[in-house]
Amino acid sequence: MFQIIGIVVLFGMVFGGFTLAGGSFDIIIKALPFELMMIMGAAIGAFLISNAFSTVTKTGADFAKLISGPKWGKQDYMDLLTLLFQLTKTMKTKGVIALESHIENPHDSSIFSAYPKIMKDHFAIDFICDTLRMMTMNLEDPHQVEDAMEKQIEKHHHEAATPAHALQSMADALPALGIVAAVLGIIKTMGAIDSPPTVLGAKIGSALVGTFLGVFLAYGLVGPFAARLNEIYEEEGAFYKIIQAVLVAHLHGNAAQISVEIGRGSVPSSFQPSFAELEEASSNAPTI
């Protein structure tokens, strides 16, 4: 919602100020289709050249995140903490072997299936199950496990954030592409150098529209889009940091209640459940 408001404010202030200053839209309107074709066409072409097909498709899919925001809400963080409480409590009371059937077939597990939204995130489920599987193989050094989990999170974040990096590269290129369009406009103007001053002025104005569009699109739209996407990826990445925090805390010998409380501290503030809310959810969690 704020992104839509931001776009309205951006266009309103820029073009409203131009109008109030006595500017005329005639030259801009006439030049706009051709300048957009050159600048955005070149930007899209460069985008396709510099990125893998998977990055291109993911960028298109992730555009919805600009409006919807991160996919995890307060209830999702509560569900994750409750799930981790069940897992760590079972490991404390019955040992890791008691979870073997659940981590080998999480889609058939009564524990995991109680949280369908988390189940849809393949990385989250694999991250939990793979870490627990390492524990069943007697890898119980908290520092080794934490290091292994950190590397997985870094890899996932790097791959997830490729659309933001690709859009930022496009934003960096747009001012230069605007100059390319402007130079072409100047070449066109020089071809009509014997025209009257009014005609030459209009042609130069059309050429400068290219420079304006390149800078405007870069710093007003594409750059902020990239920054917003990167912010969303960072916030979504906190979900996996919670998994790491809880399981590492468990390996340090903490009780299940303490482990999930440590994980609660990693929840983004706007979605963080209170101590009482987490305690109530944990106490109501079904036993295995």
Rank of each mutant, 00 (worst) to 15 (best):
F271V: 09
Q257S: 13
G178D: 01
S169D: 02
N138F: 08
Y233S: 09
M135L: 11
K155E: 09
I186T: 07
L247S: 07
Y219T: 09
V248H: 02
Y219P: 12
Y240T: 09
E231I: 08
E234W: 04
G214S: 06
Q244A: 11
Q152H: 08
T198N: 11
I193W: 08
E261V: 03
A171I: 07
A238P: 01
G201P: 15
G223A: 05
A218E: 12
E236F: 09
K241H: 14
K203L: 12
G210R: 01
F216D: 04
A164S: 15
L229H: 01
A207Y: 06
R264C: 11
S270A: 13
G237M: 13
H156V: 03
R133K: 15
Q272S: 10
I153G: 00
A182W: 05
H252G: 13
L251D: 01
A164H: 02
A166Q: 04
K241Q: 08
I179T: 04
E261Y: 03
Q244L: 10
L213R: 03
K203F: 05
L132F: 09
S266Y: 14
A182S: 15
V222W: 04
G205D: 09
K155Y: 14
A207Q: 11
G220L: 04
A226R: 06
G185T: 10
I243N: 01
Y219M: 08
S169I: 02
Y219V: 03
S266C: 12
M134R: 13
F216Y: 11
I179Q: 06
V246L: 10
L167P: 03
D147M: 03
Y240G: 11
E159A: 10
Y219L: 06
I193F: 10
L217M: 15
A182R: 00
A218Q: 01
A227G: 07
V222T: 13
F216L: 13
I179A: 04
A164E: 03
A192M: 15
F225M: 15
A238N: 14
L247M: 10
Q272D: 10
T198M: 05
V145Q: 00
S274C: 03
H157S: 07
Q168G: 07
H156A: 05
Q168L: 06
T136I: 05
A192L: 06
A173F: 01
R264N: 09
P273L: 08
K203M: 15
Q168A: 14
A226N: 04
P163M: 13
R228E: 11
P268F: 12
A161F: 07
H143I: 08
